[in-house]
Amino acid sequence: MSNRIREAFDDVRAEKELKEHTKEYLRRKVYRRNRTLWTVPVRAAAAAAFLFLIALGGGSWLYLAPTAYISIDINPSLELGVNRFDRIVSVEGFNDDGVRLAERLDIKYMDYDDALEEILSDQSVEDYLAGDALLSVTVVCDNEAKNSEMLEHVENCTSSHSSVSCHSGSTGEMHDAHEAGLSFGKYRAYLELRGLEPDITPDDIRDLSMREIQDLIDSLSGEGRESSDENTDVPDSTGVSDDTGGEDGHHSEEHEGGQENRHRHNR
């Protein structure tokens, strides 16, 4: 009987599909839970999403990366980042007045021409310019053609205002300016001032207006001439100094301002 029973049971075999279904079930239930997720459409969608993100990232980088800068200094110091499409992509204030002005201005993504107009027509800027303020606009771009083109534009924009000076420079100099914590326009003035007064530091001029710095430069160069006179002839120089004070009160004030600043620096 045992032989018959053995033979009978021997004919009973697990169907191939039963084994496959079981393996598939285990695969689904236990293993490759994640792998089954990555079906072809899902993979294609993921790849598309990835490419889209790359394109988006690249596009925004192209658009948002500044390729040129415009430094605007009156008393407020502003620096505008300009992208390759001549749009403003960043507005940074370099002193308290500048930060306040940057917060108030809504010039992001504007053409830089329009943005300049907007800044020049800002009430506080107009007030500054109506007084005796000096406006310095400095263009920074490493592409020479672009640099001169922008400088030309900026000069056109500001031509209606007196006491505006336009300059251009390189990004290397601008980085030096930023390391010193100054906007580029002010840094240029600082370098000029340092030529006359080697002890001056960026901190001394950070909160001065361009007019004050310019006056300081004027007074220092004036003082340089005076002190050379002083060396040759002391009584005469005193006379000259008195005369100057008498003739031009404004100049005297500037002179005092200069003294005061140097004094602050020495402290």
């Binding site: 039963l18 393996k23 236990v30």
Partner: peptide, 20 residues
């Protein structure tokens, strides 16, 4: 937990027994 290979081997080895 056993690996997928072990599981496959067990299915092949014991399928007839379980089926009966």
């Amino acid at each position: 937990m056993k690996s997928e290979e072990e599981a496959g081997r067990a299915v092949e080895q014991y399928a007839d027994l379980v089926r009966r």
